[in-house]
Design a protein around this nucleic acid. Structure first.
Lengths: 126, 126
DNA sequence: AAGCGTTATGTTATATTATTCATATCGTTC
DNA sequence: GAACGATATGAATAATATAACATAACGCTT
């Protein structure tokens, strides 16, 4: 009877790094930005692609680099194309590791979701 | 050399239910509130315990019950003690299932975090 | 019926966050 | 050296979220 109560629910999750103080450092948002920069080759283009503001993104990226203590981005201004931004070796490794991580997590979450729903809908005595 | 770059990072996660539209429905915050109500026997006491405002909490609870489509709380007003709030059977089952879920997830996240750090600090060719 | 403590609800104020606008800087090309 | 397209940055504005304040309703007790 209560089984269908939970049928239209979805399970979502977010994972992010913080520093020791607990302040957010790198999560899904910045992960997507870094990936977009890697693909587009410029901050401006990446922001347009994702539909987010340049100002905000620039602030975020500056903050994370400062707090991480090492560079994720290599920026150039001027030149024939006006300028460019690309990922450093560390930046590339970071998003690659995050990719793998998310892949594993998606599988795990799917399993755990099924377990949770089973827990919610089975009426045996605990 | 880059191994210590990630030493002071912490991994955090959040898990929550949404409806089909993707709007948040039940997460850690409301889970804690429900547990506190179960312990305290009243909304007012639960809010004081958690240091959150009654107004906000009342709104949240009303919203989640409406969108879930069934009651999690049994509320009474008036009476010798002014009133009370307790969990329904469904409410109890929900927080119990969430408890189990979080327990499993804490273990899993700990494992996955170690894997992620390993991924970030090992420099073998991919 | 007056008092008590709790649920219930509208309104107002504050704080936080996000967006917009404006402007400077840089280095290449023509 | 003028123009272009990108990065870099300050300041003002808008939007959203959170908190605070005030007040009503309820039902038991005395």
């Amino acid at each position: 009877m209560e089984a269908e109560m939970y049928e239209n629910l979805r399970l979502q999750y977010k994972i992010w790094f913080t520093d020791e103080a607990g302040d957010g450092l790198l999560g899904d948002g910045k992960w997507k930005i870094l990936k977009a920069i890697d693909q587009e080759g410029s901050l401006t283009a990446a922001c347009e692609k994702l539909g987010i503001t340049y100002r905000r993104t620039w602030n975020d990226l500056k903050s994370i680099e400062k707090r991480l203590g090492f560079a994720l981005l290599e920026k150039n201004r001027g030149g024939i194309d006006g300028g460019s931004t690309s990922l450093t070796v560390e930046g590339l490794r970071l998003i690659k590791a995050f990719d793998n991580f998310h892949e594993r997590m998606d599988t795990i979450m799917h399993e755990q979701f099924k377990l949770l729903i089973k827990d919610l809908t089975s009426h045996g005595k605990s």
